Amino acid sequence: MSESRPEPLIIEPFSGAPAQLFVVLHGESAAPDQVLGLVAAIRQAFPQALIVQPHGPFGAGATRRWIARADPDAEAYVGLVAQAGTVLAGEVRALQRGHGLTGEQTALAGFSEGAAVALEAVCADAGLAGRALLFSTRFATLPQAAPALTTLHLLHGAADRVAPVDQARQVHGHLADLGGDATLDMASGVGHELHDALIRQSIARLQTYLPRRSWEAVMGSPDIRIDEYDADGGASDGPSGGGGTLH
């Protein structure tokens, strides 16, 4: 049986009202301290952001998960992740209402199981978030439709054996076929971890990538890109705009 869910960790803006909302989700069998490196990078790049780190609703102590059952079979996993995504969407909407923020000012970020749930949330609720950072996850299923108002940034270790990168390629290609806005960045030599190279690239995507919906209004449809880079280096190809803002 799950213990009572701990309160989320909240980092307030340096001063004044928040300009952005980041909701950062840990992976399975983990806790918010798993994503502290990512949170620190977001804090540095977006000092006016409100950063919320929820604990997964299920589990005990520091071992939390986002879905109601541990180790479900593949069929059950699909339904459990969809349920978790719907619940997360409701929680994000409540945060937005409480702080006077919109979906366009919101970004979801998740590692492993947290990323799978984040994808389900933005697919279930149109306009929930302008961006989603999806790190190293086994997606529950291929989306039936691409979220039109959300740019999806897939970030993956090329040597990940827990969530093989081939599935990330498949999801990225599927989103492209659906007309979605997605990037895929892969770091060579990186396994199933929230590696610094992936964190750095996620911040670069937030600061320099112009969402497809904005790009098309000015320049027409951009090319969809997959970037591969060494863990000691980086890449941020694709449509770009000014740094420092989410959108």
Rank of each mutant, 00 (worst) to 15 (best):
R5T: 14
R5P: 06
L9N: 01
I11R: 15
P13W: 03
A17V: 04
P18I: 06
Q20F: 02
A31V: 04
P32I: 08
L36N: 07
A40K: 04
F46Y: 11
A49G: 09
Q53W: 11
G56C: 01
G56T: 02
P57Q: 07
G61T: 06
G61N: 06
R64F: 00
D73K: 02
Y77D: 00
Q83E: 15
E91D: 10
G98M: 08
L101N: 15
T102Q: 15
A107D: 03
E113V: 03
A116N: 09
V117K: 09
L119F: 12
A124W: 14
A129K: 14
L142S: 13
L149D: 12
H153M: 11
L155R: 06
D166H: 11
D166N: 10
D166T: 09
Q170I: 14
G173V: 00
L175Y: 00
D181S: 14
A182G: 12
A182L: 07
H195I: 08
A197N: 12
Q201A: 13
S202H: 15
L210K: 15
P211D: 01
R213W: 13
V218G: 03
S221N: 04
D223T: 05
I224R: 15
Y229Q: 04
A231Q: 10
D232Q: 15
G233M: 01
G234P: 03
G238E: 06
G241R: 14
G244S: 03
